[in-house]
Write a protein that binds this DNA or RNA. Structure first.
Lengths: 359, 359
DNA sequence: CATTGATATGAATCCTACG
DNA sequence: ACGTAGGATTCATATCAAT
């Protein structure tokens, strides 16, 4: 195990604690930093009662945009350091008050944006005074620590969750409320900005593998850690406020681990690569046999130099299929057939048989 | 008329031409700046044909993020200068490749964000390779040139357009296609990033008044100018490419001007302010008459010091209504009734009569 | 128990003309 | 510039009480 702090919460200053984490050791970071909102006075609802927002929260006070940006630069540099070099990514959530500052900073620091995801709130707080359009979303930036870093994306899993359609960059979800919302002993909301579990579910299921380590530098009441545990991932949390840590630890402890096809990204499991040559070696297809393009009479001959011989030249199944289709590229497995017992048999059929034999 | 260039298109470099515009003279700017697209090589559709993205356009090559930011700083500073001091705003559209750079810059330059609007494309270009979430939106930043500048927002008009509900920051619209999409003489799309007319309609209807002047520093094929004319606003356009200007001028010329309640923001016309005292002066309500709270037997007496006398103290209709409701603020016009001919009559009814008399 | 209605609440840069 | 008072303004959803 690479990291000493795995599955624990570090209490203290975010940047200080990040410095303790080993370089090149984290698979995913989810960060929900303070939003630097400039709250003026008190805001009353239309019925005259008071709106209890994030005003007077000491953790969201910065002297200037520059002070906020300097703070973010520090923790982002640490994040960039601790993320794995070969395969990792970071998610950061914010709203219009801070997300442009952070997005610019990410690009300045050499992070590479993959997507900006819009969390469309199905039940946003309305604009009580009619002064502007109702602010109905928060924005998530998804990035790799640099341009060349690969990242996990369980594409087919997300497509399946999304009823068979490609999942888009706009996610409609309600805000955390009701029984999901943590309450303190007086029955008031424990934390002003608790994130919905479904949001973390989407993030973790889409961009990590089972067993990965997920770090949250602003853990709060522990949604990230709880859902990480639930989905068979490891977590590391950093949080300043002991009260929140107390609740988070209880919450994580009570969380049951689930284990299903989504958790395991079964749909995104890579199939064994089968070089066409293997089908010949295994005897599914014979050397010097004819291979027919797209069930037509157009054929090539199976050879052992680049596999196909056509008009005196040697090709791979993919390059020759491309040439015959008149396209820049083609997937040869979709086009070639052999004639066995006087019937066209797709070479992809034999690939399936090969995979069944060796799995 | 303040501006010499009103209802014309300036051909040339954006920053150079912006410098010709008088300070403090523009009501609204809409900017669709070139995107800093960082497509690596050519994007290929799954069927092998080439996808005609924007990567090959010559205006879209910037050496680095820094060069792009410097370019944007220059034109944004000019925009800040030419916008009216008292009542104006700017809209900028972009996608994740450039909008974070621009949003950060706006805040650095002292612009004040009002909203970030998500244009959710109902028909986005799918992600052909399945490598990330389908990028389904573009982002519009709406800002004033500085924190203290007021801005036009036709709240009720937009609420009405949105079926009686507050309009939110997420607008679902299709991309410009079909007959709306301008074609060149070969039948290919004339401009890579032509914006849908409904997008400009929303922007202009929501944040300008009839007769305002709207400037577009990257006019392209003239959607902004065309819709400005259509809605009874003036336009100024700047565009480098003579070919686009040619098409834009034809398009503007052919545009018919419409004139309806939305164009005139009839719903957002300010009603005459009526001090409660006026109802007494006009004889709708008598001095020393009883005024009843919320149709209950709780009453105050009409006096001429702050209008209401209750338990020996003087109040305004608003402050006493607030106190009796136990709220910090209340709209007195909604709560007070007088008893005329033994029937409760709302004071708001008399305010309506007063307004009818003096309008 | 099912249905209806009242009440509470969510990351919010949430008023403005007049004197 | 600043204080004061007139007056305009809310949507979806969960919970809980009442019927």
């Amino acid at each position: 195990m690479k990291n000493n702090y795995i599955n624990s919460i570090l209490q203290g200053d975010c940047i200080e604690k990040l410095k303790l984490i080993e370089s090149n050791s984290i698979d995913l970071i989810f960060a929900d930093p303070p939003y630097n909102m400039q709250i003026q006075g008190e805001l009353t609802r239309v019925n005259g009662s008071n709106f209890n927002g994030v005003s007077n929260e000491s953790w969201d006070k910065f002297d200037s945009i520059k002070a906020y940006k300097d703070f973010c630069r520090k923790w982002l540099i640490e994040c960039q350091r601790i993320l794995k070099n070969k395969n990792s990514s970071i998610w950061i959530i914010g709203s219009y008050q801070n997300i442009y500052i952070i997005g610019d900073l990410l690009q300045e620091l050499g992070f590479w944006l993959i997507n900006d995801i819009i969390w469309k709130k199905s039940n946003p707080t309305p604009n009580f005074r009619g002064t502007k359009f109702t602010n109905a979303q928060e924005t998530l930036l998804w990035a790799t620590p640099n341009k060349k870093t690969k990242y996990t994306f369980n594409y087919k899993t997300m497509k399946n969750i999304n009823n068979g359609k490609q999942m888009t960059s706009i996610w409609e979800l309600p805000v955390a409320s009701g029984s999901e919302r943590l309450k303190d002993i007086d029955g008031n909301k424990l934390h002003q900005t608790q994130k919905p579990e479904k949001l973390l579910y989407n993030i973790i299921i889409s961009s990590t593998k089972k067993g990965d380590t997920i770090l949250d530098p602003f853990l709060g009441t522990g949604t990230t850690a709880t859902i990480s545990k639930k989905l068979g991932r490891n977590y590391i949390g950093i949080e300043q406020d002991k009260k929140y840590i107390h609740y988070a630890e209880q919450r994580i402890k009570n969380q049951v681990v689930i284990d299903d096809d989504y958790v395991n990204a079964v749909l995104d499991k890579k199939l064994v690569r089968v070089p066409f040559k293997k089908l010949i070696e295994e005897g599914f297809i014979d050397k010097n046999e004819y291979i027919y393009f797209n069930k037509t009479e157009e054929y090539a001959v199976i050879s052992d130099v680049k596999e196909l011989l056509y008009n005196g030249k040697h090709y791979s199944i993919h390059s020759l299929a491309g040439i015959l289709k008149g396209l820049e590229r083609a997937n040869g497995w979709d086009y070639w057939y052999v004639k066995h017992n006087n019937k066209y048999i797709s070479i992809d059929h034999y690939r399936k048989l090969y995979r069944e034999k060796y799995s």
